[in-house]
């Protein structure tokens, strides 16, 4: 464990908590893509099945349980408790165009053709594009609540910190995982446009207006 990975995990945790609290406190999921949240729940489910087979550390297990719990709680709030505030008309990204290719790629490009490894690979590829429905929804509505932009900032920052963690691990431990790195680069690139807007326009505006 190094500082980049730890701050990366904490940034990820912050994003997940910010979103859950935003929906719970405002009792509204307006502007939030339920589809992205379903994809994240799918990412955590397919990646953390090893909770049932191996114990790595208390930290590892605790974080996985928190991530999975919060992901499903968020999906529940969006599609059940506050479904009246769910903006389905703008959350129209065709997620099957993400899940099917990613599923196929996981079968073709992986480290080992075992069920757990293929599911892990699927979760890595899926996570890199899981935010697209959310970014698509924001581009359609042309705006995002400030709290939603903070959520996206920390979510994008987490994988960027993981990239630094992988550079650190390659340099000091000779460890590298090509699949995770390539997917992590793609994932972080998808946020670049948002990062630019967040930094340049985030200050002092109540709504982040993205030019459609």
């Amino acid at each position: 464990m190094n500082i980049f990975r730890l701050t990366g995990d904490l940034s990820h945790l912050a994003a997940i908590i910010i979103l859950l609290l935003k929906i719970w406190k405002t009792r509204s999921c307006a502007g939030i893509s339920g589809k992205s949240q379903i994809l994240f729940a799918l990412v955590f489910t397919s990646r953390y099945l090893d909770l049932l087979t191996s114990f790595i550390s208390l930290y590892n297990t605790t974080m996985k349980v928190i991530y999975i719990g919060c992901a499903y709680a968020t999906v529940y709030l969006i599609y059940a408790k506050f479904k009246a505030t769910y903006d389905g008309n703008h959350d129209t990204f065709r997620v099957e165009f993400l899940v099917v290719p990613v599923g196929g790629l996981a079968f073709l490009v992986n480290h080992d053709f075992s069920p757990l490894e293929i599911l892990w690979t699927f979760s890595i590829y899926l996570e890199s594009v899981a935010i697209l429905p959310q970014l698509f929804m924001i581009s359609k509505t042309g705006e995002a609540e400030t709290i939603t932009t903070h959520y996206l900032f920390f979510l994008g920052l987490y994988r960027a910190l993981y990239l630094i963690n992988w550079i650190w691990r390659f340099y000091f431990e000779g460890f590298f995982d090509m699949i995770a790195i390539v997917a992590g680069v793609v994932q972080t690139i998808l946020y670049c446009d948002f990062f630019y807007l967040y930094v340049t326009k985030g200050e002092g505006r109540s709504q982040l207006s993205i030019p459609t």
Binding site: D9, D50, S54, S57, N60, H111, F175, D177, A180
Partner: peptide, 10 residues
Amino acid sequence: LDSQTDKDEL
């Protein structure tokens, strides 16, 4: 260089 994968990362 072969890619190693230890699943201790989240």
